[in-house]
C-alpha cells in the first residue's frame, strides 16, 4: 500500500462521515434516553450511566448488563456477558481491518475502539467504493459517541419520567434494521449472497428461539460465514 498517509487528513472525509451518521444519531436519541431510564431504575446514578456509555460504547451489551444488574453488582457475570454479546466484533473488525490498512495500525487501534455496529456497517459500505479513512471513521464516531454518552445521562437524570417512553411507538426502533437492510442490499452480489443471507437468517432465528441471550448473532454470523467458505471454489479466489 503506497496510498499517502495524508489521506487521513482530508476534511471532506470527516464531513462525509458526519453526513452518513446523521440519521442514525437522530434514531439513537430515544434509544439512549430509554437506556438511561432503565439504568436509573436499576439504581445506577447518572454519573455511572455516562461512565458506562463512554467506556463501553456498545448499546447491545449495555442493555443486557443493565437487565441483570443487581446488588451486589455481579461484575464477573456482566463482564463475561459483554464479551459474549460483542463476540461478533471479532469478525467485524477482521473484515474491516483488511480494508483500512492505509490508515496505519496505530490509528486502527483508536478508530476500532469506536466500532459500534452502525459505525462498522457504514465504514464497510464506504470501503466498497472508496477509502474508509481515519477521518471518515471519526466523522461517523464522534457525533454518535457524544450523543450516546450525553443522552443516556439525560435519560438517567429524568429516570422514571421516561419509563413510558416507547421508541417503538414512532417506529424509531426500526431505523437500525432499516439501515442494515439498505446496507445488505448494497453488498448484494447475486445468488451466492442470497444463500449466505438465508443461512445466517435461519440460524439466527433458530438460535434465538432455542437459546436465551444474545448468542443468536454469533450463531447466524458463523452459519453465513461457513456457508460462504463451503460454497467457494478455493482455486477461483486464490491470489
Amino acid at each position: 500500500m503506497t496510498i499517502s498517509s495524508n489521506t487521513d487528513l482530508r476534511p471532506n472525509d470527516f464531513a462525509d462521515g458526519l453526513r452518513a451518521i446523521a440519521p442514525l444519531v437522530v434514531a439513537a436519541f430515544p434509544i439512549a434516553l430509554v437506556f438511561g431510564a432503565l439504568a436509573a431504575q436499576k439504581g445506577l446514578s447518572p454519573f455511572e450511566t455516562m461512565l458506562m456509555s463512554s467506556v463501553v460504547f456498545a448499546g447491545g451489551s449495555q442493555f443486557v448488563a443493565v437487565d441483570f444488574w443487581a446488588d451486589p453488582v455481579p461484575w464477573v457475570a456482566i463482564t463475561i456477558s459483554a464479551l459474549l454479546v460483542n463476540i461478533r466484533h471479532v469478525l467485524m473488525s477482521a473484515s474491516l481491518g483488511t480494508k483500512t490498512h492505509q490508515m496505519g495500525f496505530g490509528k486502527q487501534l483508536i478508530a476500532f475502539g469506536f466500532l459500534a455496529d452502525e459505525i462498522w456497517a457504514l465504514s464497510e459500505h464506504r470501503a466498497r467504493k472508496q477509502d474508509a479513512s481515519f477521518a471518515f471513521m471519526m466523522g461517523l464516531a464522534m457525533p454518535f459517541y457524544i450523543n450516546w454518552v450525553v443522552m443516556t445521562g439525560v435519560g438517567s437524570s429524568l429516570g422514571t419520567l421516561l419509563a413510558n417512553l416507547d421508541p417503538a411507538k414512532w417506529g424509531f426502533d426500526f431505523a437500525f434494521p432499516a439501515i442494515f437492510i439498505g446496507l445488505i442490499m448494497g453488498f448484494w452480489q447475486g445468488q451466492k449472497t442470497g444463500i449466505i443471507l438465508a443461512a445466517s437468517g435461519l440460524a439466527a432465528i433458530a438460535c434465538k428461539a432455542l437459546v436465551p441471550g444474545a448468542w443468536y448473532i454469533a450463531a447466524g454470523a458463523a452459519a453465513g460465514v461457513l456457508v460462504a467458505a463451503i460454497l467457494t471454489d478455493p482455486e477461483a479466489v486464490e491470489g
Binding site: R88, L91, M92, A94, S95, T98, D117, A121, E124, F176, P177, F180, I181, L183, I184, F187, T193, I196, L197, A199, S200, G201, L202, A203, A204, I205, K208, Y216, I217, A218, A219, G220, A221, A222, A223, G224, V225, L226, V227, A228, A229, I230, L231, T232, P234, V237, E238, G239
Partner: peptide, 23 residues
C-alpha cells in the same frame, strides 16, 4: 488470507448484518 478463509471473511458483512436483524 486466501482461499476459503478469504471467502469467509468477505461474507462477514452480510452474515453479521443479517444475523442482527433476522429475529
Amino acid at each position: 488470507l486466501k482461499g476459503r478463509t478469504r471467502a469467509a471473511l468477505e461474507a462477514v458483512p452480510v452474515a453479521v448484518l443479517m444475523a442482527v436483524i433476522a429475529p
